[in-house]
Simulated scan of single mutants.
Amino acid sequence: MKFIIRLLLIAIFSYLLSLVMPWWILILVAGILSFILPGGNFNAILSGLLGGGLLWMVMAWKVDVETNSIMSTKIIQLFPIDDVNMIIIATGVLGGIAGALGAFTGNSFRQIFIKKKEKSFYS
């Protein structure tokens, strides 16, 4: 349940803040939310990956539809890619990597402050 909540909060806050802030706000949002909402490393990384990746993919698709693929066809001329959908997927992958790194950093920073239990000689 925390995974889904963290994923949705990363996507929602990143979208809202990206309207007035630069692209790297996704990294900060994923890091702060992973610091606030506890979870395992894999759980945090996956929520940041999916939250950021899906958000950026949807936003790239939205821009592509609104501009009738004008911007995408100009980007295709710069890179050796033949399909507009590959540009959208690549954008999602980059957003996912950014979100995953931010979430991992926030979760790791939280683990610095958690006191670990010492192992007993008898356990």
Score class of each variant (00 low, 15 high):
Leu78Ile: 15
Trp56Pro: 02
Glu118His: 10
Phe113Leu: 13
Ser72His: 09
Ser34Phe: 00
Phe42Gln: 15
Leu16Ser: 01
Ser47Gln: 14
Gly52Asn: 05
Leu28Met: 13
Ala11Met: 12
Ile10Leu: 05
Asp83Pro: 15
Met71Lys: 07
Ala60Lys: 03
Ala98Cys: 12
Val63Lys: 07
Ser123Met: 08
Ala30Pro: 00
Leu37Gly: 01
Ile75Ala: 14
Gly102Ile: 00
Glu66Tyr: 03
Met71Glu: 14
Lys2Asp: 14
Phe3Ala: 08
Asp82Cys: 13
Asn85Ser: 13
Val93Cys: 11
Lys119Cys: 08
Met1Thr: 13
Asp83Ser: 15
Ala98Thr: 07
Leu37Val: 12
Gln111Glu: 10
Gly95Trp: 01
Gln111Tyr: 09
Ile81His: 07
Asp83Thr: 15
Ile114Trp: 05
Lys117Tyr: 06
Phe104Gln: 02
Gly106Phe: 03
Pro22Arg: 04
Glu66Ala: 14
Ser123Tyr: 10
Ala103Glu: 00
Phe42Leu: 12
Ser108Asn: 10
Gly92Leu: 03
Trp23Phe: 11
Thr73Val: 15
Phe109Glu: 04
Lys115Ser: 12
Ser34Gly: 01
Ser120Asn: 11
Pro38Ile: 02
Leu17Glu: 04
Ile70Lys: 05
Ile76Tyr: 07
Leu33Gln: 05
Ile88Met: 05
Phe42Tyr: 10
Ala30Phe: 00
Ile88Ala: 03
Trp24Pro: 06
Lys117Gly: 05
Thr73Met: 14
Ile45Asn: 03
Ala44Cys: 02
Leu7Gly: 03
Ser120Glu: 09
Leu28His: 11
